[in-house]
Computed example of a mutant assay.
Amino acid sequence: MTDGIAGGRSGAARSPLATPPGAALVLDFVNTKPTGGGSPERLGDAESLAQWLVASGLVEPEVVVTAADAAGARELRDALVMVLLAHSGAEGAQGEALAAAERHLRRTASVYPLVPVITAEGAVLTSEQAGVPRALGMILAAITETAATDKWGRLKACRNPPCHIGFFDRTRNASGAYCSSGCGSQVSMRALRRRRQSP
């Protein structure tokens, strides 16, 4: 189980387009949502949330997980997905929808507060809570760590509905909007059909 999410540490010879520390957990959390490609809901109930948290190393197998925990995790994830959709310029991920997601993230952060642990080697954010609250706090720590880097805008959710898979945009100019060329092609084909059908 991770003890903290590192912040402000420089990796040796890190590529400019390397995924920031913590971003992998953020994307794994985002990608628990169902997609149009048939991926199931992985946080649908207490049992499935418990399985994901244990597999992610965020809780021990004996930790009790409730249906309310699962609902809270889905709400946190969905707010985060909205922010990542805004990063990819997705339609509907601006204005009040984005503001509501950002408000939810602030409220959640107040429920699962983080504590900075500062040493000679650097600093980490960690949670002093236990169980599921600690796990959700560590997800918030990973989000915070990633947002504090210049790569935050490269964490995106695929613009192709209903895919919305989270991905790290490694294009040189950070212009990626789709998780794959297949999703980009689907959007292009839909736009072409609409143009052909319009009078």
Rank of each mutant, 00 (worst) to 15 (best):
C179V: 09
E47T: 10
D78E: 13
G153A: 14
A86N: 08
I118T: 11
A24M: 04
M189T: 14
A120Y: 05
A142I: 02
A97S: 07
L192D: 02
A101V: 09
T66S: 15
G153R: 15
V83K: 09
L27I: 05
R170H: 09
V26F: 11
R193E: 07
A50F: 01
V132K: 05
A68Q: 05
H104G: 03
T19G: 00
A135P: 05
F167P: 06
Q186E: 08
L76Y: 08
P61D: 12
A191G: 11
I118H: 11
S48W: 07
R103Y: 03
S110R: 08
G37P: 01
S181M: 10
T19E: 15
S127C: 06
A109Q: 02
E62Q: 14
T108P: 00
A191H: 11
L17K: 10
A79C: 02
A157Q: 04
N160E: 14
V124E: 15
P199R: 15
G95V: 07
A67C: 03
A70P: 06
E145F: 00
G182R: 12
G38A: 08
A157H: 10
F168A: 12
V124L: 14
F168Y: 15
A93S: 10
G184H: 07
F167L: 03
V111H: 12
A12H: 14
G72R: 15
A79I: 08
V81P: 04
D3E: 15
L58C: 09
R77E: 11
G95F: 04
L140H: 05
I143Q: 09
A130R: 15
R106S: 06
A100Y: 00
G36T: 14
T149C: 11
G95Y: 00
Q197W: 02
P133R: 04
S127I: 11
A71E: 13
G153P: 05
P113D: 09
E62L: 08
L155N: 04
D28S: 14
A86G: 04
T66P: 05
D28T: 10
E128Q: 12
P21W: 03
Q51T: 10
M1S: 12
A13D: 13
A12D: 09
V83T: 12
Q51C: 01
I118N: 05
T171L: 13
Y112L: 04
R107I: 02
A142Y: 02
A12P: 01
S198H: 11
R74T: 03
A67V: 04
M82P: 01
S185A: 13
C179Q: 03
N31C: 02
G89S: 00
A147M: 13
R193D: 04
S181C: 00
A67P: 00
L155C: 08
H87Y: 04
G92K: 01
A6Y: 08
L85E: 06
S188V: 08
V132S: 03
G7R: 13
G166Y: 11
K156D: 01
C179M: 07
Q51P: 00
L53T: 04
A99G: 02
R106F: 01
S198K: 11
